[in-house]
């Protein structure tokens, strides 16, 4: 811990530095996904013909993926609870469980996309599909990035080090889940 500057240990704003930074990351991500989804909603409301394009998305796979992400959010918050009780190894186990959820999500999405591309719905077949792949793709990239960082945090947590990071990655993970909570109805339910 010695190479960390004194600055990081202060909390004039009344909360630990790490959590303050993660909330600012969440704010900057809100406007990124916000911009993308706002553009998508505008186009979606403008083109009523996108309804039948959207009909080809498989709601069941989307629902399952939502379930997977919700459960991974649960294990992430349980990991945070374990970490706040000082139980590093248990937190690490729960984090690995969350990463398992992330991997499941991405593989399911991979199969889903492969199937849809097979049927001919590629990114250029219509602007709906362009938005579909861009938004879900950007979200999947955030899921993968979150899983990688969570792996690093889990390795450290297993040795009872940097336990406060479990909560930080948890907040980021819940945000990624939140984005999917809005993406799911937008892409799958609105038919």
């Amino acid at each position: 811990m010695s190479d960390r500057p004194i600055a990081t240990t202060r909390s004039a704003a009344g909360m630990p530095t790490g959590k303050l930074a993660v909330w600012w990351v969440v704010v900057s991500e809100i406007v990124i996904f916000g911009g993308l989804l706002a553009s998508y909603i505008m186009h979606r409301l403008a083109h009523s013909d996108w309804g039948e394009q959207a009909a080809h998305t498989n709601t069941w796979i989307g629902a399952f993926n939502t379930l997977v992400l919700l459960s991974s959010s649960l294990s992430a918050v349980l990991a945070h609870k374990a970490a706040s009780e000082g139980n590093g190894p248990k937190a690490a186990k729960l984090l690995w469980l969350t990463i398992l959820g992330a991997v499941t999500f991405v593989t399911v999405k991979g199969f889903e996309w492969a199937h849809e591309i097979e049927l001919g719905y590629t990114i250029t077949s219509s602007t709906f599909w362009s938005f579909y792949y861009t938004a879900a793709g950007l979200h999947a990239a955030h899921v993968i990035a979150g899983a990688i960082i969570m792996g690093i945090v889990a390795v450290a947590a297993a040795k009872n080090r940097e336990l406060h990071r479990v909560e930080l990655i948890g907040i980021y993970w819940h945000f990624v889940d939140l984005v999917w909570i809005f993406l799911f109805p937008l892409l799958y339910i609105a038919k």
């Binding site: 991500e29 990124i32 911009g35 553009s39």
Partner: peptide, 17 residues
């Protein structure tokens, strides 16, 4: 900067595509 760059980052990805 952080509150305003988001939409353009999304726009830049869309332009790149």
């Amino acid at each position: 900067f952080m509150a305003s760059v988001g939409p353009l980052l999304a726009g830049a990805i869309m332009l790149l595509f």
